[in-house]
Amino acid sequence: MEVVKIMTKEKFQSFWNKFGTLCILIVLFIAFSIGSPKFFPQPANLIQCLLQSTVYILLAFGEFFAILLGGIDLSVGAVACFSGIIVADLSLQGVPPFICLIIGLLGAVLFGFINGVLINALDLHPFVVTLGTNTIFRGICLVMTGGNPLFNLPKWVKGLSTYIVGIPKPVIYAAVIGVILVAFTTKTVAGRNLYALGGNKQSAWYSGINIKKYTVLAHILSGLFAGIGGIVMLARVGAAEPTAGDGYETYAIAACIIGGASLFGGKGRIWGVVLGGITIGTINNGLNIMNVSAFWQKIVMGSLIIASVALEKLISNKVKK
C-alpha cells in the first residue's frame, strides 16, 4: 500500500496498464511456490510450465487480432485441430515435412479467411459467425478422420517439439513469433490500422481504412496462429486427435483478456497476451503439481480467470475514482 500512496493515481493506472498482468503472474508464482515449494519453482518445471503455455500463447496471438477489432473468434480450437490433422494426414502419406507444414498452415489460413469473408458478407457479429464455423470446422475434422486419431506419425513430427540447449522448440517458436508480432503491431502501418479500426470503425472508414479487408486480415492472422498452435499441439502429443483443442478458444480468449485486451476492441498488447498465455499455462501446471484433480482444475481455472480479470477491473475502477 505504501507504493500506492507514493504514486499518483494516473501513474498507478499507467503502471497497472503496463505491468498488471505481470503482477498477477507473480502472485500466482508465489502462491504455487508456497503450495509446492519442492517441485513448482524448480527450473525444469518452470521450463515445462513455459512449454505448456506455448499452445495457449499461439492461439491467443490469433485470438488477439479478432478481439483487437472488437470481435471474437470462437473457432481457433477447431482450426488448430484441423491444421494438425492435415499435417498428420499428409505426413502419413510420405509428403515432405516442409510441404506438409505449408499446406497445414494454408488450410488454417483458409478457415480464417472464410470466417472473415462470412462476417463481412453477412454483416453478422463475429461471435455468431465463429460460433457456427467452430462447429462446422470441428465437423470437418471428424469427417476427415472418421472420428479416429491419426498416429504412428513419422519421426520428424515429434522432432518439432524437441529441446535445443535445454529449451523446448515450441517455446522458441512462440518467442520468435512474439517478437515479430510486437514489431507488426507497433511498427507497421497495417498494425496501427488494426488498432484504429478497433478504436472506432466508422472513424477508420472515414480516414480511408478499408474495414472489410482489415476484418479479413485479422481473421486470416487468427487462422494462421491457430494453425501454428495446432501443429505444436500435434508435435507434443505425437498424434492427431479429431477432438484436439476442444474448448481451447476459452483459454485463448482468457489469455487475451488477462493480458489486458479489451473485448470492446482497440486495446491490448502482444506482450500482455504472452503473459496472459503464461498465466493460463502456470495455473494449469501449478494445479497439476499440487495434485488437484483434473475435474477440480476446471473449476479452479475458471474461477481464477474471472478473479484475475475482476481484480484488474477493480483496480482500474478504484484508480478512476
Binding site: 507497421t188 502501418v189 496501427r192 477508420a204 480516414s207 480511408g208 481504412i209
Partner: peptide, 19 residues
C-alpha cells in the same frame, strides 16, 4: 494525425509500410 498520412504512403490499398 498520422493515420491517413501513413495510409496514403502505403501501398496495396493501405497494407504495407512502417510507422
Amino acid at each position: 494525425i498520422a493515420v491517413s498520412t501513413s495510409l496514403k504512403k502505403s501501398t496495396l490499398g493501405g497494407f504495407t509500410g512502417m510507422v
